[in-house]
Design a protein around this nucleic acid. Structure first.
Lengths: 272, 272
DNA sequence: TTGCTCCCGTTTACGGCGTAAACGGTCGGG
DNA sequence: CCCGACCGTTTACGCCGTAAACGGGAGCAA
């Protein structure tokens, strides 16, 4: 079962050293960064780890293999990364940071929004973009121990939580209501996105497992589960995007209701 | 920070060998299960693994250590369990099975309910009981690849999904509406419970890490995050139970609304 | 009783893992 | 011209999962 190939690190022993002078001289050798990315640094290592996980899966990531994907021995990584655990933390940080990348023009630049509803929608879409771009990394975002107990994945940075609470506060939420909204929102995001990437992963892993005759097996399996059998075609359909929007809208409605009730009654309703 | 302790396996090397001869006669076997549970079987191994994870954490579980917690060498386990991965799958199955244990008299016996709302409430409470009883195991329930792509954690068994869909069908849901409810419900459960056990785990791991002067550190950290600093006491409070009930009620309201709209209009509203 | 056979835990062994420590080559600056 | 700093390599260690061979006790047939 999926025996890992032995992966001897070949062809790396006689490549061109001297990487950070490449651009300086430009005379002796300049093209070496096609075979190897021209010299290590922390960012390159983290990006390589993300790519590796996307392609081979989280379980396949080892220091030795990551090193050899960079054309380097495992121990070389330790000059830039304290160890494997910290590497994984760095991967999570780096992936979450892409929230602020304004790559699609206006899709998710959460620093520039109009109103808290808009902010929450953009933030949700941004996190979903990240999850779908790196479905094998996202479980890490979800499960790595957070910096503080009240940092709730997938909203993993102080900066993010600050902007969340600040935006809601500006929108008229009391501190209690903002915190309650933060918790409801993070639960919603985590549940939806984790299940969505789980489903992607499951489908992928099914594809490279022909496994005899799955048709017959499924049918016999479902023989004693009538409701399941009837719903099976529906269960196979992927409506994740629509359901995500629907749930998000529902959450926003709920928050809006709470906000207005609190305003109109002046009561102690901040609990959501 | 949070370096995993190196965890040398101490004090285990010279324990009592030959344990199953301790009380051999006196009836074939009766009292020896105080020192060792009298002989291995799959169930005993799975239960030992659950206990081990609860006490030492998932990362600490190795075949050797699990074996020695049973007074046995690692290889002995392989007679009853195909390997480590299957062991973890077994752990998940066994933990989820306790849903049907009628231990508290009437708390969560989901086989005996009145109406789909009652069923969903009991099921939610049952899953939450499991999550809180085994907070270190629950991430495994959430993240192990499911049997089929449409098995959505934490509702992990065909039997469970069948009873879910069947109950909603009996309650008047169309197949589409039942499936949509299944997805919304599983997202809700997973998000809430995973975040609740994450928070428990984070608090625990903070306790055994005095780590200098956390007070000063926290204050400096939050200096540039005004909203966060103001909300910090609120963020520390644990209102998980109330929030869980609130969100659950909201979800049920939403489902009920969808159900009635579909009934009254006869329209194609099954999408939730 | 003897001896066989199966059951079941142990021993041994292997390759891979994370990583500490020592090493060596190749720079730029005195 | 040399020297120290930088940076990737080599070597080594203990732990991991697990394949394979081993051994001893229980049950049973003769």
């Amino acid at each position: 079962m999926a025996t890992m190939s032995d992966q001897t690190s070949d062809q790396t022993s006689d490549d061109v050293r001297d990487p950070d002078l490449v651009a300086v001289q430009e005379g002796p050798e300049a093209a070496s960064e096609l075979t190897r990315p021209a010299g290590l640094d922390r960012e390159k290592i983290l990006q390589a780890a993300i790519d590796f996980i996307d392609e081979e899966g989280l379980a396949a990531l080892t220091m030795r293999r990551l090193g050899s994907s960079l054309g380097v021995e495992a121990m070389a990584l330790y000059r830039y990364v304290p160890g494997r655990e910290d590497l994984l933390d760095g991967v999570v940080d780096r992936v979450v940071e892409t929230l602020w990348d304004d790559e699609d023009g206006d899709d998710v630049y959460i620093g520039d929004h109009s109103g808290w509803q808009d902010y929450l929608v953009r933030l949700a879409h941004g996190m979903r973009r990240i999850a779908l771009a790196h479905p094998a990394v996202f479980p890490l975002v979800a499960s790595r121990p957070p910096a503080a107990p009240w940092v709730r994945p997938p909203l993993r940075s102080l900066r993010l939580v600050e902007s969340f609470l600040g935006t809601l506060h500006d929108g008229g939420f009391s501190d209690q209501a903002a915190v309650a909204a933060y918790r409801a929102y993070s639960s919603f995001l985590l549940g939806h996105l984790l299940l969505e990437v789980t489903q992607i992963g499951a489908q992928v892993s099914l594809l490279d497992q022909p496994e005899g005759d799955p048709q017959a097996q499924r049918e016999t399996d479902l023989a004693e589960y009538p409701s399941l059998a009837r719903a099976e075609p529906l269960l196979g359909q992927d409506k994740s995007a629509a359901e995500f929007e629907e749930s998000l809208e529902n959450l926003l409605d709920r928050l809006e209701r709470v906000l207005h009730e609190a305003k109109n009654s002046g009561g102690d309703v901040g609990d959501l």
